[in-house]
Every structure is written in C-alpha cells, then in structure tokens.
C-alpha cells in the first residue's frame, strides 16, 4: 500500500532532538541550491533542511531522506551521525527508508587529550 511521504518539518524536529546535533543545514551544498535559492529569494520560502524523496525502486513504499548536520564536539561525530540515521528510521517505521547524513560542521569546546 502506498504511503504519503513524511513531512520534512517533522523529520527536522526528529533530527534536531538527537543528542549532539547542534544544527540541521540545507540538505545539499549551497552551489547545488542556486536555483532553489533564487526561488527562495522571489517567494520568501526557505529551503527545507531535510530532503525527503520517493524511493527510486518502489516510490510508494520506500523513501530516501537526506540531511546535513552540525555536531557538538562534546559528542563523537560518527556516533551522532549513526544516531541520526537510526532516529529517522525509527520515526518512519514501517516505511522502508535509506538515510543520507553528512556532518558539515563540528563545533564547541574541544576535548582535552586523554
């Protein structure tokens, strides 16, 4: 049975609430968003920080989620990245999803060695 794609705003909140996530950036690098940015300037509509795309193989039952995040240096960035993917998958269950998460910034107080 086909399911509606999840709302990007809803997923933004899910991702933002993961421990260690400090920011959710527009899902694609800015140079790929030029057309979108021009549209945004005209319409005043902000680009979504989370892209939700229908799955290529079974559009009605699968989806692809893409996002870019900032991570606090108080948390291990690879762990936070995996936690985000797991949180998205849990939230969208039973929809079959693939998740693309990219860490675009690591910020905050730096850990002292050992």
């Amino acid at each position: 049975m086909n399911q509606p794609l999840p709302a990007a705003d809803e997923l933004y909140e899910v991702i933002r609430s993961v421990d260690g996530v400090t920011a959710v950036y527009p899902a694609r690098p800015a140079w790929q968003n030029i057309a979108g940015a021009a549209l945004s300037a005209v319409t005043g509509v902000q680009l979504p920080p989370v892209l939700v795309l229908p799955g290529a193989e079974a559009p009605g039952t699968t989806a692809e989620v893409r996002t870019r995040i900032g991570v606090s240096s108080a948390h291990r960035a690879p762990d936070v990245c995996r936690d985000v993917a797991a949180a998205v998958r849990r939230h969208l269950d039973p929809l079959t999803v693939t998740v693309n998460v990219q860490v675009a910034a690591i910020s905050g107080p730096l850990p002292l060695p050992r």
Partner: peptide
C-alpha cells in the same frame, strides 16, 4: 544499516 550513506 546497509544502504545508508553517512559521511563528513
């Protein structure tokens, strides 16, 4: 999870 793409 296989199929996911995680990166920095």
């Amino acid at each position: 999870h296989p199929g996911d793409t995680l990166s920095e």
